[in-house]
Simulated assay, not measured.
Amino acid sequence: MSVELSLRERKKAATRAALGRAAMLLAVERGPDGVTVEAIADAAGVSPRTFHNYFPGKEEAIVACLTDGAESLIDELRARPADEPIWESLRLVVRGLLQPERHEETAALLRLVRDNPALFAQHLSGLGEMERRISEVIAARTGTDPDRDLYPHLLAGSMGNAIRTATDLWVCGGGAASLADLVDEAFARLRAGLPGP
């Protein structure tokens, strides 16, 4: 029974990923206003009704490639050794999620999100939820209380800002710098207490 449920969950995740990828590629190609739910569903090989089982609207689907990584990040963070310094765990988990083979389309999507208020708002909402959930994992790892202690929230927020800042610089620089190196530098500077240049 659990194997069957696991298979169903994997199929659901694959359908969501296919819809998100189709939405992202169509938005990059046509612009967000040129994308419809019907076009996304058709590109993913499902019905518009199936689309709505996964996303309330096209904006959520377009940014899903950016926000759905939170699930993997959380799972990977939980799997890191308990005695590993939390900053190092966070850095390694973020680095592990970078997909160099998709950097070009990720950069195109990030530019699109930056220039579109509805997509930007949806992206920020997804990142905020990711930070909240990561703060719970950090709290469990550090023995703090996510309902009372600042530490897990500050650390999760710092991590989110490090990722956003590194990717913003990377996108603005046209991908000239290494995204992985920018992420490493952002984490190193935060861990060191943000010393001046």
Rank of each mutant, 00 (worst) to 15 (best):
L179Y: 13
T165G: 09
A82R: 06
P146W: 12
G173E: 01
S125Y: 10
S135V: 03
G160K: 12
Y151P: 04
A23H: 09
G96P: 08
R10A: 08
A44M: 05
E59W: 04
V137A: 00
E38I: 09
D33S: 14
P197C: 15
L127Q: 15
R191E: 11
E185I: 09
M24R: 08
A82H: 03
L5I: 00
D75S: 03
T15W: 01
P117H: 11
M130W: 13
K58D: 12
V46P: 06
R114E: 11
A64C: 05
T165Q: 05
R191Y: 07
M1H: 01
V137R: 01
V137N: 02
L5C: 00
L190M: 14
E29M: 04
T142Q: 04
V183A: 11
A140W: 12
P117F: 12
E29Y: 01
E9S: 02
G174K: 06
D184S: 15
I86C: 06
L73W: 00
I62N: 04
G69C: 06
R132N: 02
E71C: 00
P152W: 01
K58S: 11
A180K: 12
G157I: 08
S89C: 14
S125I: 11
R95M: 14
F51P: 02
D149K: 13
T165S: 14
L66I: 02
G193R: 08
H123M: 10
D68Q: 07
R16P: 07
P152L: 05
E29S: 11
D68L: 05
D42V: 09
D83M: 00
E131H: 11
R49H: 09
H123N: 09
A23D: 04
L77S: 04
G174W: 03
L194K: 07
S2G: 05
N116K: 07
G160A: 15
E71F: 02
L124Y: 14
G57W: 00
F187V: 08
P152C: 05
S135H: 01
R148H: 12
G57H: 06
P56S: 09
G160D: 11
L190C: 10
T67I: 10
A64G: 01
K12Q: 13
A176Y: 07
L7M: 03
D168Q: 00
R102E: 10
Q122C: 14
G143E: 02
L7W: 02
E136V: 12
D168E: 02
A140D: 14
V93M: 13
P85A: 02
L182R: 15
L77C: 02
Q99V: 14
L109F: 04
I62K: 04
E105D: 07
A14T: 06
L90H: 01
H52S: 08
R133M: 02
R16V: 10
I40L: 14
A64L: 01
K58T: 11
A43C: 11
A162Q: 04
G157T: 15
S47Q: 15
R141P: 03
L25T: 10
A43G: 10
L190P: 06
G173H: 01
A70R: 01
M159A: 15
E60P: 00
L92A: 09
A41V: 09
A79W: 00
E4Q: 03
